[in-house]
Design a protein around this nucleic acid. Structure first.
Lengths: 216, 216
DNA sequence: ATATCAATATATACTCGGTATAATTTCATA
DNA sequence: TATGAAATTATACCGAGTATATATTGATAT
């Protein structure tokens, strides 16, 4: 349970992280095994050998034990936009990011291998789907602000919101169409191609919606 | 409470509908007055003078007492697509529907007058926002099937899903940008114009994403 | 009219996620 | 070693939703 973590952290922090990890591990295992809705907080606490309140201490919502990498996605997208080369539009930067994710088999885009089970577990629970939609919704707002900021417009710029809405919608459709292929045919290569084709078409259309602006 | 309803229905059905209406009325009033999350099922049952279980009998989820017109929206969209003139594309039919909604001050598009409070109440509750997102998500699937069926393609046609995703995303962004104007400036005319401008741009872009197909 | 059956309403008791509060333990530090 | 803050935990509570059993009410056949 202690995992000999980085010695930079003091014991208190190490123990806290270890407890958090124990809860997360138990929860993930139970969710995958029995389904999100079938696992109770008490069972997770029992499995992790902590008190019930400790679970809520680390994870305010049950869904937080399942979706644990929101920040990484946000930072990846932020880096792609900020770190793009001169004279490259933000939309192109995001399109290239999508291609890089497929190429690298990036697990933050869970279309291949083991992460497919993660997606299946999420799709089997109305609560998890609701949380995923909430994350998409919040991310769309953040993306709009990122895009606006990247070309020095105010964060509530209407073009940015339209563009962000279309980009996220495209990503979502592309992901699910790709997922369906991966899940039914088991063909990761085909899934990736479907995903990228839809990304390219959708992003191009999204760009057209704000043509004449510096977003494209 | 009886409201001398249509005599076509038998007494049993009339009473059932009256009970449902009493619950809906009490709930709506309380939600608007105190906020969705601040009102308990027991308070609604008390106000409507029915038992707690009767409330759940008519409305399986608390959110169902707030969003009560899903079907009307679906049917309106369905009618617009099915009832379009020959040689008119489904996308154009939907674009015209948006313009007609603004022109008619259609309350199913709550951008003007009293329905603005309805939107504000929804936006103040995380539970209601979640339900709205769920409805959008399901509607996107239904719309994709409608679109595919309207040009005799299978319901799971990938182009239809991309198109539906972009159309719903556009509608959503256009609605919120319009709502913000209506809410802040109180200018219904300007709100309508913003909404329609975004609809036109987004729908055109969505059409571009599936250019070469009969959807456009 | 009355017996009968099904739809509706209701009471009771329960599960589960989440909150509030207070007490206790554990670590860092002066 | 004393002190205080962070972390854990127990207890009690709230509210949405479910299960189940019972009572009531209206429609219908005799």
């Amino acid at each position: 349970m202690q995992e000999h973590a980085s010695p930079k952290l003091d014991r208190r922090t190490r123990k806290r992280l270890a407890t958090r990890q124990a809860i997360s591990d138990s929860a993930t295992r139970l969710f995958m095994e029995h389904g999100f809705d079938q696992v109770t907080i008490d069972e997770i606490a029992e499995a992790a050998d902590v008190g019930r309140m400790t679970v809520f201490n680390h994870f305010p919502r049950k869904e937080d034990m399942f979706f644990d990498r929101e920040d990484e996605v946000r930072e990846m997208v932020f880096a792609a936009i900020q770190g793009r080369e001169e004279e490259m539009s933000p939309v192109t930067a995001l399109r290239l990011l999508a291609h890089r994710c497929i190429e690298d088999r990036n697990p933050l885009l869970p279309l291949f291998g083991a992460p497919l089970r993660f997606v299946a577990t999420a799709l089997a629970s109305e609560a998890l789907k609701a949380r995923a939609r909430q994350m998409c919704s919040e991310f769309t707002r953040v993306l709009a602000a990122m895009l606006a900021e990247s070309i020095d417009r105010p964060a509530d710029d209407t073009d940015a919101h339209l563009l962000a809405g279309l980009l996220v919608a495209t990503w979502s459709v592309a992901f699910f169409e790709g997922y369906n292929v991966a899940d039914r045919n088991g063909d990761a290569e085909a899934a990736g191609q479907i995903f990228l084709r839809l990304i390219d078409r959708g992003f191009q259309a999204a760009a057209a919606a704000v043509s004449g602006t510096p977003y494209v």
